[in-house]
Nucleic acid binder design. Structure first.
Lengths: 251, 251
DNA sequence: CGCTTAATTGACACGATTCAAAGATAGTGG
DNA sequence: CCACTATCTTTGAATCGTGTCAATTAAGCG
């Protein structure tokens, strides 16, 4: 088991400083957040929170990957959100959690107790504004995913997934979020197993595997071991994804 | 073509008064909203707005049903949101619309120009707070729908859809939203064609039709004409929907 | 009443799942 | 350093559910 990364207590040096819920905060607001925050670390596979849990704390992902998922009685599971660094866990004004939250890789969270945080939000418009913006982004992402789940073929789903990871780990904004997320332009170190991919895409492991193989045989991607995928033909992959736009990848 | 309902200009008598974005407003805040609002009506099938359009106004659905949808290049379409009375169209801080908005039945909107509305929101915390709450509800609904689209069978999808309409038209809050939405406890007047149902459920028209027939033959529902469905066995339908809870229908 | 559109039903095809087995990979201890 | 084990991934074959295409029936409306 690897050791938890030692994060600087200083918010101004935080890797997710410019994307997280605190991104709009002024130095004095940051100072107040700093005084009530604390870090927690979770190992791969560990449950961070479960559906129905009282939400006692609210947090941002600082490093690692986690999932939001819903499970049916018979075990069928759908991942309904991917939590990457800077993403937010918790809801203002909600008592209980609606989804299971699970660590996929080692995850470090920057946490706040609900009470103090909500007090702070009420006094700090920047946080509330940023929160609304982030929730709207999540809503758009969720709806794009509905199109994928409802209408795309397995091949399109896998291509779309690779492009999503590409877009989200490249971070065109310029802020690199820790070395483990740094990918070359076209080299993706998947933070996920095939099982997580399948659960996210509404497919089975076998189908994901077959589609990855097919994309490789068609020369669109290469694989290095099981966790690294190199995109050989970005435009081609975008065509295969079935999206009618580039998702902001091209400029 | 039926005539547009004549709405009272007085917000305090508005049918969606207690659910819409303005629900938390004080009388004086309501007065300010009242001074800048105006109504628009759309006929069934009419496009209210298209993806990419500049969002010049922001509105609430007062009556009728509209859809949010995404279309792929080859025409495959997924409805990503159902807009029923009190639902909100538009996004604070976004320039363009992400989805197509289409009237399904005759739709009346309570509209505000973007500029004045955003100014008002900045000065009226109640509106911003309510907006965040509504967006969070939409996000939860979108994620529940992701589970449906990704993992449920056609039968489960149709059962879930009927229960959704049941829940949303019953309005347990007690505020009835115009006679056209009033349903008996177990009598649903679908505001949608089979095509809209299919597009929402990620199915084809034929499959929806077959599943409705199957549910009827199994004694769970009855049909009257094509737009009315009577639920004969609510508990049974909930079992068929695959949800592990009652969605708040039972108390 | 006839016309147009929507819904239903049937036969068949195809894509994804299921079940089963083999292969690759990473981690562990000898 | 290599064998051993557990886990993850890949591959194959058969099945099943939903989509597709085509024809029929029903409903709504002028």
């Amino acid at each position: 088991m690897s050791q938890a990364p030692a994060f600087n207590e200083n918010c101004s040096e935080c890797p997710i400083r410019h994307r997280a819920v605190c991104s709009r905060c002024e130095p004095d607001e940051l100072e107040r957040l700093e005084s009530i925050k604390y870090y927690r670390t979770f190992e791969p596979g560990q449950t961070i929170a479960m559906r129905g849990d009282a939400m006692e704390n609210i947090s941002s992902v600082v490093s690692g990957t986690a999932t939001l998922s819903r499970v049916m009685e018979d075990g069928r599971t759908q991942i309904v959100g991917l939590l990457l660094p800077s993403d937010f866990i918790g809801r203002p004004g909600r008592e209980t959690l609606q989804y299971d939250v699970t660590a996929v890789s080692q995850v470090t969270l920057c946490c706040f107790r609900r009470g103090p945080f909500e007090t702070l939000v009420a006094q700090t418009p920047h946080i509330g504004e940023r929160m609304l913006e982030m929730v709207l982004d999540e809503l758009d992402a969720a709806r794009d995913w509905m199109l994928l789940l409802g209408r795309k073929t397995a091949r399109e789903k896998v291509a779309s997934f690779l492009l999503l990871i590409h877009k989200r780990t490249l971070r065109p904004g310029g802020d690199n979020l820790g070395k483990e997320m740094m990918n070359d332009e076209l080299r993706l170190e998947l933070p996920l197993t095939r099982e997580v991919m399948a659960t996210y895409l509404g497919l089975t492991i076998e189908t994901v595997s077959r589609q990855v193989t097919a994309l490789r045989k068609d020369g669109l991607i290469e694989t290095e071991g099981k966790k690294v995928i190199v995109i050989r033909d970005l435009i081609g992959l975008m065509t295969e994804s079935g999206d009618d736009d580039d998702g902001g990848i091209l400029n």
